[in-house]
């Protein structure tokens, strides 16, 4: 199946608004996957999603087992008890386990993923308003970030054959 439609998508603009590991990965997988299919891809990091491109925090993107009923105790179907999830270190342990699985499956780290997306011609933007709120400057972001945009400037990058995806 090479082409399903007469008018395929030419570009995806993906908004990454949340900063936990399991929120950041879908944006990265979709952006990279688009590029590999010959679809242009641009990522717009806003609010807590900015963690994934901020130099000081991008190595610390982690997951939390709290408040997620689909998160099970390893090897069982029992929901991970929130009360255990709040114990210091449990989030780090869950993150470590998830990262180990990711590496085993030959999936890049969140940082390497953005390297791959940049190498494939994908663009990476920071959100101006969220950066103002968090007191972040362009220099605080990865050096290879293409720039900082307002939402209006971001929309201006779309055309009729573009899809905007919010995660």
């Amino acid at each position: 199946m090479e082409k399903n439609t007469e008018k395929p998508i030419k570009k995806v603009l993906i908004v990454c608004s949340k900063g936990s590991l399991v929120d950041v990965y879908p944006s990265l997988v979709m952006a990279n996957g688009a590029l590999m299919e010959g679809i242009e891809a641009e990522l717009f990091f806003t609010f807590f999603g900015l963690d994934a491109i901020t130099k000081k925090t991008m190595h610390k993107v982690c997951m939390t087992p709290v408040g997620n009923p689909a998160m099970r105790l390893p090897g069982t179907t029992f929901p991970f008890p929130n009360i255990i999830g709040i114990i210091p270190g449990v989030s780090l342990l869950a993150t470590w386990m998830m990262k180990r699985t990711i590496e085993k499956l030959d999936i890049p780290t969140n940082i390497e993923f953005i390297d791959m997306i940049r190498a494939g011609g994908g663009k990476v933007w920071g959100c101006k308003m969220a950066m103002d709120m968090f007191g972040l400057k362009k220099e605080d972001l990865r050096d290879d970030v293409d720039g900082v945009l307002t939402i209006g400037e971001f929309y201006a990058r779309a055309s009729a054959d573009t899809q905007i995806i919010f995660t």
Binding site: L35, M36, E37, M116, G121
Partner: peptide, 11 residues
């Protein structure tokens, strides 16, 4: 990866 995209554009 960059070169790979240049060698096989679009896929």
């Amino acid at each position: 990866i960059k070169t790979l995209y240049e060698l096989f554009p679009g896929g």
